[in-house]
Nucleic acid binder design. Structure first.
Length: 488
RNA sequence: GGCGGCGUACCCAAGGGGCUAAGGGAGAGGUCUGCAAAACCUCGAUGCAGCGGUUCGAAUCCGCUCGCCGCCUCCA
């Protein structure tokens, strides 16, 4: 298995630190606003990485944090006239509901900064003892900073030179810092701000330190994989490395993984440019599974241009997949095991025999989900071709069963393609806000079936037209009529 | 300015020295059908931003040019 390591800038063989369990940490969200599709991408990408590692037989302990205290949360609370913890709770709940719809499962541990104040304080104490941190008085309380000059390897992840950083450092630097690029470990509490008691008075943790404290607490001093969005490389992950390696004297992370951005008009989606789409808005318009497919249809490190058209295309393509699935299920449920005529199955057999390998080598190559999905659709096409031959008999049945099982095994790594045709369409009724239930539709189809049997074509056409106007398409087949939601 | 990345058909996108340049969407033709739609099948880049070079061989490596983006500041 190859993983692209941001630290070395190369794809490297994945060799875990220890045999038993892989430690994986991904930086989650700061809970101060609705999450947007960029946050979702990161969550989906690491969800798939975790799933594939498990598929490959590794035990994985996956930790994803929530930042539930920081300046933005405090500001938001002031804006909304509530407390900081109410803000954090609200957006964490919302994050969970969005992620749930996207099929992102929970991490094994989901620590929050405010739940680890003691651990953070312990870490800072050690950093002081080792001479990496210094205090700055701020009225009655004290702030603590990490002294970047004490850590010679600073910049090794982001490939930055300390000198250049200084030149580019912000104008409004805290003049109490020894070096403009030093960063806060602990912030003295200002009036009206939330605070925790510490050896340095009342204050709260800086941003970066929570990840150091929580990663080490839950995964140990050295972890296999640490990831997040590419915008976290600097300064967040650079600072994490400095703190953590200063603390333990050991390498913090073996493989650093970073996902690319979502762009709009080629520009990074960001709050300051006000060019973001929240997951709320997107899930209101598009099917959640289609959004997940859209996100996984590009390699995780490539930028993805946000596009309504592509989101819609993803729905169409999923719809086609589920049609194939319906054909397979139907074939298997109707199959009698008796072979009526000779079948030509060599091509499908060939595809089925190679499929698992193709899927795995795609995923083994730095989690190439786009290629893997391509293979899945290729197999679907072969299945359709085979089914077009109207096969029968045990050989055909076995083959289709095998294909279906493989599709479901690989689909579950991506957490895609797992529904039945009916579930997919029932889901689409909701996405497309069609005011009909499955039962309503089935009742109308049954009515129409009677009309058809009596050759009352006008009546049958009327029913079909009525459903069509509501976005339901009827498909007449040899042995009955099936329905589906029109995605186009 | 420093560092990094991108440019593949109408749109999206994989590939990253030699196999017919995956896959999806759109489009066109066909099969099926009471009619129709859907579905399904087939077709779709002699060419991978441009120009040079290396090589028996380049979309893939090297150089230059053009266009675009990211990080260097809170950011997934």
């Amino acid at each position: 298995m190859l993983i692209f390591n941001t630290m070395t800038g190369k794809k490297e063989d994945f060799i875990p630190l220890q045999r038993e369990t892989i430690g994986m940490y991904a930086c989650g969200v700061t809970a101060y606003n609705h999450c947007h599709i960029g946050h979702a991408r990161s969550a989906v990408v690491f969800d798939v990485i975790k799933r594939y590692l498990q598929y490959r037989g590794f035990n994985v302990k996956y930790v994803r944090n929530f930042t539930d205290i920081d300046d933005k949360i405090i500001n938001k609370a002031e804006e909304e006239g509530t407390s900081w913890d109410a803000v954090a709770r609200k957006y964490i709940d919302e994050f969970y509901s969005d992620m749930d719809r996207l099929g992102v499962s929970k991490a094994d541990v989901e620590p929050r900064a405010t739940g680890h104040i003691e651990d953070i304080i312990e870490v800072i104490k050690i950093l002081i003892d080792k001479g990496y941190a210094y205090e700055v008085a701020d009225n009655d309380n004290k702030s603590l900073y990490f002294s970047v000059d004490r850590f010679p390897e600073y910049g090794k992840l982001s490939k930055k030179q300390k000198g250049e950083l200084m030149a580019g450092a912000r104008a409004c630097v805290d003049e109490k810092k020894k070096n403009p690029i030093d960063f806060a470990l602990w912030k003295a509490s200002k009036k009206g701000e939330p605070w925790w008691e510490s050896p340095w008075g009342r204050g709260r943790p800086g941003w970066h330190i929570e990840c150091t404290a929580m990663a080490i607490k839950h995964l140990g001093e050295s972890i296999d994989i640490h990831g997040g969005g590419a915008d976290l490389i600097f300064p967040h992950h650079e600072n994490e490395i400095a703190q953590s390696e200063a603390l333990t004297g050991r390498p913090f992370v073996k493989y650093w993984m970073h996902n690319g951005f979502i762009t709009i008009n080629k520009e990074k989606m960001s709050k300051s440019l006000e060019n973001f789409f929240t997951m709320r808005e997107i899930l209101d318009k598009y099917n959640a599974e289609a959004v997940r497919l859209f996100l996984l249809s590009s390699h995780y490190r490539s930028p993805i241009e946000f596009s309504h058209e592509q989101l819609h295309d993803a729905e169409s393509s999923l719809d086609r997949y589920y049609s194939t699935k319906a054909r397979m299920d139907e074939f298997l449920s109707m199959s009698t095991g008796v072979q009526k005529k000779a079948i030509y199955s060599a091509e499908l057999e060939d595809f089925v025999s190679k499929f698992k390998n193709k899927f795995e080598s795609a995923m083994d190559d730095d989690f190439n989900t786009a290629l893997a999905i391509g293979h899945i659709f290729e197999l679907a096409r072969e299945i359709n071709k085979f089914l077009d031959l109207r096969p029968s008999g045990e050989t055909a049945e076995t083959l289709i069963k095998m294909a279906r099982d493989m599709l479901s095994a690989t689909g579950s790594v991506l957490n895609l393609f797992g529904k039945t045709h009916l579930e997919w369409n029932a889901d689409l009724l909701k996405t497309k806000k069609i005011p009909l239930s499955v039962d309503d539709i089935v009742a109308r189809v049954d009515e129409r079936q009677i009309a058809r049997q009596n050759k009352e074509w006008a009546e049958a056409d009327l029913i079909r037209k009525g459903l069509e106007d509501k976005g339901i398409i009827l498909e007449d087949k040899r042995d009955g009529t099936s329905w589906k939601v029109n995605v186009s």
